[in-house]
């Protein structure tokens, strides 16, 4: 494997808030008082109810969206508009349907990449993502899992210091999702970017993340916007045993935190 990937970068959010204008002209707070430090190379999962500002938080770090208050920084400097130190993979693969898989991945290459180096990098990523056979196919000719891998390869082509994943496996079937989670961990071992991952899947968060950020409104102040409820450290080295006792405990804790009864009876 070549050593072209950029070093992982740390991310910090300080008193971050984001409001959106409603159709009636009033302001609705989606996120408030977000304080979070992510170490370089760490994998952090954001969990929370839908509509709870998870994607908004990711978009703030990517620079696709701007905070109304507070500071969002990568490696100690504020994120620029569409910051090129990070790369995003969205919930939908969002491949350009008229381009081949290979040319779609090439779209992710940083500006000014030498053509030969770019081709080599794209070929390497396609191999890593097990897409060798799909290089010259169009997006409509490949499966959802392959399209999602191509989308991930495109994000990695940027050599991002921070990889932002917005429910990247959410639309996949359960088995493909498990395979993709393993693949993501393999990729992270080879290309250790900092990963910020939005998910609604508690188990996914438990398998992948070093820490899990639970986002949501405080029960005693509904309507004031989501903030960080808890940050949980996930014990154990990856790959993790999905059935380990500590993981099971954590799962029920998270489900309760999301307002879902876990029906879990703690072992005596």
């Amino acid at each position: 494997m070549s050593n072209v990937s950029a070093p992982a970068l740390r991310v910090s959010l300080r008193s971050v808030a984001r409001r959106f204008e409603q159709p009636d002209g009033s302001q609705r707070t989606v996120l408030r008082d977000i304080e979070l430090d992510i170490r370089a190379g760490e994998i952090v999962a954001i969990l929370g109810p839908s509509g709870g500002g998870k994607s908004t938080m990711l978009r703030l770090v990517s620079g696709l969206d701007r905070a109304d208050a507070g500071r969002v920084e990568i490696d100690g400097t504020p994120v620029a508009e569409v910051d090129q130190r990070s790369a995003v993979a969205f919930q939908e693969p969002r491949l350009l349907p008229w381009r081949t898989v290979e040319r779609n991945v090439r779209l992710g290459l940083p500006r000014g990449t030498e053509p030969a180096a770019g081709r080599a990098r794209v070929a390497e990523l396609l191999r890593l993502m097990q897409l060798d056979a799909a290089v010259s196919l169009r997006p409509r000719q490949i499966s959802g899992g392959m399209a999602q891998r191509a989308s991930l390869a495109r994000a990695l082509a940027r050599n991002p210091g921070v990889l932002l994943l917005d429910e990247p496996f959410g639309a996949l079937d359960a088995l493909t999702r498990l395979t993709m989670q393993d693949l993501l961990l393999e990729v992270h071992a080879v290309e250790p970017a900092t990963i910020l991952l939005v998910t609604h899947d508690v188990d996914e968060a438990l398998v992948l993340a070093d820490r899990i950020v639970l986002l949501g409104e405080t029960p005693d102040a509904p309507g004031t916007g989501s903030t960080i409820r808890t940050i949980l450290h996930v014990p154990g080295e990856r790959p993790r045993d999905r059935a380990a006792a500590a993981i099971v405990e954590l799962r029920s804790l998270l489900l309760e935190g999301l307002g879902v009864p876990s029906h879990h009876v703690s072992a005596p």
Partner: peptide
């Protein structure tokens, strides 16, 4: 969604239009 992908990967105005 596609336009946003183009933006996210650093394409602006004219490049975004042609790409």
């Amino acid at each position: 969604h596609l336009v946003e992908v183009g933006r996210a990967f650093g394409l602006r105005r004219f490049e975004l239009l042609t790409t």
